[in-house]
C-alpha cells in the first residue's frame, strides 16, 4: 500500500512538472526539499497576522468526506470570522451540515445552532490561543480557520514540514499571490499568500495523504484588516425560544439526566 501511495505522489509530481514548466529540460541543480524562502514567507505571514489586533475574514470552502461506500463527496461551507485580539471572537458558519454561530468574549464560549434552537456554553480561558486548545482537546470541537490563532505561538509545528516549495504566482479573487506547497507526514498543503504589503493567506488547500482517496479541504479567504467590531457582536443573548443544552467533553461519561 505504501508503495502504491508513493506511486501516486510520483505521478502527481510528474503531472505538475509537465504542466508547470515551459520547457522539457529540468531546471538546474535541485533545490533543497525545504526551500528556506518558502519557510520565510510562511513566517512572514505569521508575523504579519500577529500584528493585526482586529480583523474580519470571510471564507468560503469545501471539505471532502467519504460515503460508507468509499465514494468521495464534497461539502461546502461559508465562514464569517471576526476577531479582536487577544480575547474576542465571533464566527458565523453556514454550511451544508451546520449553521452555527460562535461567540467568545474572554469569559464565555458559546455555540448556538440556529437550525435547532439550542445553544451550549462553557467558561472560557482568557485568550484565543488557549481557547483553541481547550476546544480541541477537551471538547473535540472543530473550529474552522482555527490555525489563524496559532500563528505566533510555539505550537505552529512548522518544524514538522519536510518539504516546502514556491510553486508560482496566482491571482486569487483579483489579488496577486505567491503559491507555496508544503509536505508533512500526514498531509500535503498549499498556501497562497498575498503579494505586497499585507501578506495574508488568501487560499489554502490541505490534502490528507494518509487516506486512500486523498480527501481535501480548501478555503478562500477575504480579509478586512480595519473592521469595526462592537462589543455586542461577541456576547450571546438567547432568545426566549432558544434553550441551553450541555457541552459534552470528549470521552466524558454521561450519567443520567443533567440540567
Amino acid at each position: 500500500m505504501r508503495r502504491l501511495t508513493t506511486g501516486v505522489a510520483v505521478v502527481l509530481i510528474a503531472a505538475l512538472g509537465v504542466r508547470g514548466s515551459t520547457s522539457h529540460a529540468r531546471p538546474g541543480p535541485a533545490k533543497p526539499a525545504v526551500d528556506p524562502d518558502a519557510m520565510a514567507a510562511l513566517h512572514k505571514m505569521g508575523e504579519f497576522l500577529r500584528t493585526q489586533q482586529a480583523f474580519a475574514v470571510q471564507a468560503r470552502g469545501t471539505t471532502d468526506d467519504l460515503l460508507p461506500s468509499g465514494q468521495k463527496i464534497q461539502y461546502g461551507v461559508a465562514v464569517d470570522l471576526k476577531v479582536r485580539r487577544p480575547d474576542h471572537m465571533r464566527m458565523d458558519i453556514v454550511g451544508d451540515r451546520r449553521t452555527d454561530h460562535i461567540y467568545y468574549d474572554a469569559k464565555t464560549f458559546t455555540v448556538y445552532s440556529e437550525k435547532l434552537n439550542y445553544f451550549a456554553a462553557f467558561a472560557a480561558p482568557a485568550t484565543l490561543a488557549e481557547l483553541k486548545g481547550v476546544l480541541e482537546k477537551r471538547y473535540g470541537f472543530d473550529l474552522p480557520l482555527a490555525d489563524l490563532f496559532y500563528w505566533g505561538t510555539d505550537q505552529d509545528s512548522s518544524n514538522q514540514i519536510h518539504a516546502a516549495t514556491h510553486v508560482g504566482v496566482a491571482n486569487i479573487d483579483g489579488f496577486m499571490c505567491d503559491h507555496y506547497a508544503f509536505r508533512q507526514s500526514d498531509v500535503d498543503w498549499e498556501l497562497w499568500i498575498e503579494q505586497g504589503g499585507r501578506p495574508v493567506p488568501r487560499k489554502f488547500v490541505i490534502t490528507t495523504t494518509t487516506e486512500k482517496t486523498k480527501p481535501q479541504h480548501s478555503m478562500v479567504l477575504n480579509w478586512d484588516l480595519t473592521p469595526k467590531l462592537e462589543d455586542h457582536l461577541f456576547t450571546f443573548v438567547a432568545a426566549p425560544n432558544v434553550h441551553q443544552i450541555a457541552f459534552q467533553p470528549v470521552g466524558g461519561a454521561r450519567k443520567g439526566v443533567q440540567p
Partner: peptide, 27 residues
C-alpha cells in the same frame, strides 16, 4: 486509474479533513 484502484478498497470510516494551515489534525 491509480486513485480509482485505491479507492475500491476504501475503509468505511469517515474521515473529515478539517484542520488548517500548519497544524493539521486528522479526525
Amino acid at each position: 486509474a491509480i486513485v480509482l484502484s485505491l479507492s475500491t478498497t476504501a475503509a468505511h470510516a469517515i474521515i473529515v479533513r478539517t484542520a488548517v494551515a500548519y497544524r493539521p489534525v486528522a479526525r
